[in-house]
Amino acid sequence: MGTEAFYTTAAQVLPTILIALMVEIGLMLQMRGRRYGELYREKYDALLRGHAPPTSFPGDPNFDIESAGRSLNRWGFISMAVGVAFLIGEGLSLSALAFRWFTAWTFWPLVVSMGVMIVAAVCIPFVRQTQV
């Protein structure tokens, strides 16, 4: 269905989108991990002093240890989903170029993979900006 130019462009664009997404997701994981570490350290210090441990982050009462752990797991899952979408798309585009498989079986999954990565590249920076 697609032309050779389409598959060549897809093979070049997908790694670029992947790099941008991994930088953004890395920033989210780093920010969340730092806040989780601070909260966990506060809880540990309070237990050592014999005080009641804090259940939430001092600056954000909605950020507790359980939600921080869920958030880290969620962003880890998102990074794996983006990686799988990249592997599927890049594998299809390279195999289509190598074996001249310009069919619907390589075109539509590649389009879906690119769509997932493009939507993620557009949405993830907005999520990071609203959660700072």
Rank of each mutant, 00 (worst) to 15 (best):
P15M: 04
G59E: 01
F63Y: 07
E42I: 11
D45E: 10
C123R: 02
F99M: 00
S71N: 15
I17Y: 00
V127Y: 11
E66L: 07
D45P: 04
Y7I: 03
G115T: 01
L27T: 12
F86M: 05
Y40K: 11
L72Q: 04
V116T: 13
Q30K: 14
T130I: 13
E24D: 15
G59Y: 00
V111T: 06
R35G: 11
S95V: 05
A96L: 00
Q129L: 15
A104Y: 06
R100D: 12
L21G: 08
T8Y: 08
T130H: 05
T16Y: 11
M31I: 10
L48F: 13
E24N: 15
Y40M: 12
Y40V: 10
V122S: 12
S67H: 11
C123V: 10
S71L: 15
T103Y: 01
F63P: 06
T16N: 13
G59W: 00
I25H: 05
S93L: 05
L21Q: 05
Y44I: 09
V132F: 02
G115Y: 00
G83E: 03
A68K: 04
H51V: 06
M22C: 10
M114T: 08
G83N: 03
E38D: 09
N62E: 08
E38V: 12
R41Y: 06
L29Q: 15
C123W: 01
P15L: 04
V127D: 15
P54G: 08
Y44T: 12
R41K: 13
G89L: 05
I25A: 11
A98I: 03
L97C: 07
G69R: 01
G59K: 00
Y36F: 12
I118M: 04
V82I: 10
A52P: 06
M1A: 11
G59L: 01
F86T: 08
I78D: 14
G91W: 00
L97V: 07
V111Y: 01
R32D: 13
G26V: 13
E4V: 15
M117R: 02
G69F: 00
M22Y: 06
A20P: 00
I19F: 09
T16W: 09
A104F: 06
P125T: 08
A104M: 08
P61G: 03
M80F: 10
M1E: 12
T9Q: 14
I17T: 09
W108S: 12
L92I: 13
A52R: 09
N73A: 15
G37S: 06
A121P: 05
S67Q: 11
R128S: 09
S79A: 14
A85K: 03
Q12T: 13
F107P: 01
E24G: 14
L72D: 05
R49A: 14
T55F: 01
G91S: 02
E90V: 11
I88M: 01
M31V: 12
L39I: 13
S95P: 02
W75T: 14
